[in-house]
Design a protein around this nucleic acid. Structure first.
Lengths: 225, 225
DNA sequence: TCAATTCTGTAGTGATTGATATATAAAGAG
DNA sequence: CTCTTTATATATCAATCACTACAGAATTGA
């Protein structure tokens, strides 16, 4: 049967990518329907038929952002052999994604909707939840490091995770304020100097390819900022 | 002569404070004239007669924020005897101002206008300039510490300043996401563990009340986030 | 070909935006 | 008192907001 009526006259994925770039640049409230339809090269009825409404389009754009710009940071968190290396590479991947000269600077999840009128509550909560999820992923990676012996058993995992999430989010502000890739990479290296003094890392685990047995089982989850 | 015509029927300072709190909570674009006039307890013509327009009101609100919420952080930067103590107290003062249960969370300078439509360019540039100024103040304080011998002569001041400004800005995101005062204070202590290994601090200078001879001459400057 | 279905462009919807015209009220100056 | 000056409240302005009614166009199934 295939599709019945008149076929869509535009590339949905391409249009979604344009919408993502606009939301990334000017935020959710800052992207008007006029600006969106112009950027996407379609008319309002086409947008609503294909995506629902502005909020649904935004959520799809965030999903695309996660799968593209945020993928590398998420991957680094669970492929690096050590927790320290995972955090470092995650932060550096975020810097790389936040300082591409051909794309908006900073992380969309952090910048697109921090404040706004009461009617945008759900959108802000959606992004906040995405940030919370990636913060929890970071915390779990650190906890793996603690249990593997890389971090001392008495390490305050919540505080350490909170610190690196704070740096992660701060990097987006710095990037939007014009900081370059080299400068922010140096900031990441500086942040790694706050890493706790070595615990008793079992050399076999630290040098193993996977941080713990659980690593391979959690490939997904919103990558976040 | 005094004032000629009908006297103003409201307290201008009080109204400005209400406007500041609303801008702080929902941002520049998020605060509609209706919401502003309701919060300030005045009508639109009174607002425009007293403050000019929305953008001028916002700039005055930012000035009030600097003089009140940001004052303690700015003061700490130039009264603490050591650069390390100055940075630490500045960050802790920011945490305190960002986690008052009776006020909006996070720093207004960071949160009120990170993204938005093209027409808000000047407002965002105004806040970005405020952030740049406070970042430069932090850099100068670190440079003082380097020249006093507290920090090693080869310390990368720009990177160290960039790191602590990144933490400073990240704290506002964390606070707006619901992080509490104790958690963020612990994050600050964690950030201080990235402080460079001691240089050759001349004990007389480190214990002196002022960081350097220049300290007393720069009391002001926008306090920033 | 004809009917059914889906998409597209034009042109608009009511609601809300920041900002004001107008008339009146309240003060000092003379 | 009158005149001038400034502030206030009502009622609105044009522009923009997210969104959609409508009719025509383009496809499939019969």
């Amino acid at each position: 049967m295939a599709q019945r009526g008149r076929p869509r006259g535009f590339d949905r994925d391409h249009a979604l990518r344009r919408a993502m770039e606009l939301f990334w640049q000017v935020g959710y409230e800052g992207a008007s329907l006029t600006a969106l339809t112009t950027a996407m090269g379609i008319t309002p009825p086409s947008l609503y038929a294909a995506f629902g409404d502005k909020e649904a389009l935004f959520r799809e754009a965030v999903g695309l952002y996660d799968r593209t710009e945020g993928a590398e940071a998420d991957r680094a968190l669970w492929t690096e052999p050590t927790a320290r290396g995972a955090v470092r590479e995650m932060l550096l991947a975020n810097v790389a994604a936040s300082t591409d000269p051909h794309k908006p600077s900073g992380c969309m999840i952090v910048l697109a909707a921090m404040t706004g009128p009461a009617r945008g509550d759900q959108v802000r909560a959606f992004l906040a939840e995405s940030r919370r999820t990636s913060a929890e992923a970071l915390r779990r990676r650190l906890d793996d490091g603690r249990r593997s012996g890389e971090l001392p058993p008495d390490t305050d995992i919540d505080t350490l995770a909170g610190f690196y999430v704070t740096v992660l989010h701060g990097l987006s502000i710095q990037a939007r304020d014009g900081a370059g890739r080299a400068a922010l990479a140096a900031v990441v290296e500086q942040a790694m100097r706050a890493w706790p003094a070595a615990g008793h890392p079992p050399a076999d685990l630290v040098r193993a390819g996977a941080p713990t047995a659980r690593a391979g089982r959690r490939p997904g989850g919103p990558s976040g900022p």
